[in-house]
Design a protein around this nucleic acid. Structure first.
Lengths: 158, 158
DNA sequence: TTCTAGTACATTGTACGCAATTAATTAGCT
DNA sequence: AGCTAATTAATTGCGTACAATGTACTAGAA
């Protein structure tokens, strides 16, 4: 007699909680950033650049965890909107250096102030906020080191 | 003299932690579900249907938090792969009833068994897993009730 | 019954996300 | 120098997400 397989309920899944929370945060930031005509991935790209500019596409990607397939068109849009500049490296023509435009440098305090105001709506004190983030990062670290390809799959696993 | 705006660092943001964790889980499930040729959104759609089938597109969407713009093409692909069936309701022609195919009903134990095996890789005991999920759901609930449009934006907020 | 809202799904348009491939360039080896 | 391997972006193709719009249909009011 086969051991009964443990049931999987949608609302009990950690993955679904993260999936839902991530989408809601995305929507939240979409509204918070609307005055600046920025999307959420564009915002985190700016966050990375405000900490360190210029960077190559590769370096930038390692900070925001996106590859060139996502970043190249995203950066082209940001260039069109005047947020960043893209320049081929003169020493190594394979690389493209991404730097902040003056507009992005100037807008930083305004964007920070507005985003911080919006964050106040969450009503989370700093301790709760940090604890939540650390918990999520812990789970992200665990999942990062798990590779389902190592689990052998046979057509009759139960 | 203006109050200095609080600095925003990418790696300290809860949104970025959730964004990253969600993407990693997505990747994890992509690999875990590869033997079945299912994507993650398709998997949660099946989870919802395994709990309750048939459902209209609207009902299904309220469970997985997706609208018809996403679900319609997704369900068409799942229909092509033989996972679900789509039928216009005879009493109300506006509605489309989504039901599990025999293939989906038959595959459930195998998919549950394999996904559960993959989840073991996380090495999270049930208590930690549940606590993490509840923490994430708490944050998701907070963000859900926050509307940045209520925060007035003036060009010089600082 | 005819008009009018409202509802449900489909479509369109824009923007990711990422695997896989390609193209250009550089670096390493002999 | 000449050949090969590795590196970096860009491109392509597919699948989400979701706002906004369109269309078909239903139901309720006059």
């Amino acid at each position: 007699m086969a051991t009964p397989t443990k049931n999987i309920l949608l609302d009990e899944q950690l993955c679904f909680a993260l999936y839902t929370a991530s989408k809601r945060f995305n929507h939240f930031y979409a509204e918070a950033l609307a005055p600046f005509k920025l999307t959420y991935p564009q915002y985190i790209t700016l966050l990375a650049l405000w900490e360190n500019s210029p960077m190559t596409v590769r370096e930038l990607g390692s900070h925001v965890n996106l590859d060139s397939g996502t970043l190249t068109p995203l950066l082209k849009r940001m260039q069109t909107q005047g947020w960043v500049e893209r320049k081929r490296d003169e020493n190594d023509e394979r690389q493209v250096n991404i730097s902040l435009s003056q507009k992005a440098i100037d807008a930083k305090p305004e964007i920070f102030a507005h985003v911080n105001s919006c964050m106040d709506l969450l009503g989370m004190d700093e301790k709760t906020y940090n604890a939540t983030r650390d918990t999520v990062n812990f789970a992200a670290e665990r999942i990062k080191n798990a590779d389902p390809k190592t689990v052998k799959f046979t057509s009759n696993e139960l």
